[in-house]
Design a protein around this nucleic acid. Sequence first.
DNA 1: TCAATGTCACTGAACGCTCAACTACATCAC
DNA 2: GTGATGTAGTTGAGCGTTCAGTGACATTGA
Lengths: 163, 163
Amino acid sequence: MLGDVTSTRWLDAEEQRTWRAFLDANKLLFDRLDHELSRDSAMPHGYYEILVRLSEQPGRALRMSQLAQTSQSTRSRLSHAVARLEERGWVRRESHPEDRRGAVAVLTGEGFAALAAAAPGHVEAVRRHLFDRLTPAQVEQLRAISEAIRDPLLEVAPSSGSP
Amino acid sequence: MLGDVTSTRWLDAEEQRTWRAFLDANKLLFDRLDHELSRDSAMPHGYYEILVRLSEQPGRALRMSQLAQTSQSTRSRLSHAVARLEERGWVRRESHPEDRRGAVAVLTGEGFAALAAAAPGHVEAVRRHLFDRLTPAQVEQLRAISEAIRDPLLEVAPSSGSP
DNA sequence: TCAATGTCACTGAACGCTCAACTACATCAC
DNA sequence: GTGATGTAGTTGAGCGTTCAGTGACATTGA
């Protein structure tokens, strides 16, 4: 198929099947999780991620560029996202005390409350659609596989936002 | 964390680690693949998927709603996407011969050529970033895991577009 | 035959993301 | 110091997706 004059290492039938299953599983899973989160808590998954990362920091605050890194995001996307989170009163910006270029995103009380309200439902959804479907051995396999995929990609573009 | 008065089945440390690795691996992998495809072939992954599905059909044609289903897409998204593919001359629309509500998307010669030009690079990228990172046993595991995640999600919303 | 209901596909507005500037500040070399 | 380069963060335009709504046609049942 698709006239092959080059030395392309095409996928064989088994690999095709794996790739399709992987593609479809991901699409379905993340669409579902994002949809349920938006429906129940009026926040897209990207916002949820940002709130989670902030909530894990001491002082519930983090510099914008570091927040972008831990969220696998870009500075641009984060800047837009934090602007919208600020409109909702869930995050506020402060200027960095030492580096005058810097901005620090701080999770507000309302933001933490919104996260606390959203988390149980979301975690349940992750369980229902992911962990409950897998055996303990498969969960362990999934972790190893994910790390094997992730780590090389982290090394190629470690700074200044992933994509 | 996050004051727990309900009976939420929170993720333990090991599950957290798995979930984070899975999230990050997916984000990095699909961002990378989409980025390389856009850069090398000027088409987002969603378009590529549509062209692939069409190319696999007899006559390289498929009804819109069926194309939406096999692409894990919605009719709305597909309608917009095909409109843009039509502007590029890669797909054309015909009216369904029997059901006068229906529209049929047909892959043009140019569309097939664009796909043939894009495929080798994309397949290589999938190999580099996915299959080359995994052992044969892990590939087999990934297939089983993906199917275990996918199949229940397919049953819940089988018709009228996934999300 | 005819109304009610369902299905197919399209459309426009709103939203989030990407990309390419751009400003402001920091750092480095000389 | 001064100029060059690097880094932090923001902004606006363009693109793709989602959502709600719409019109056209098909199907069903009385």
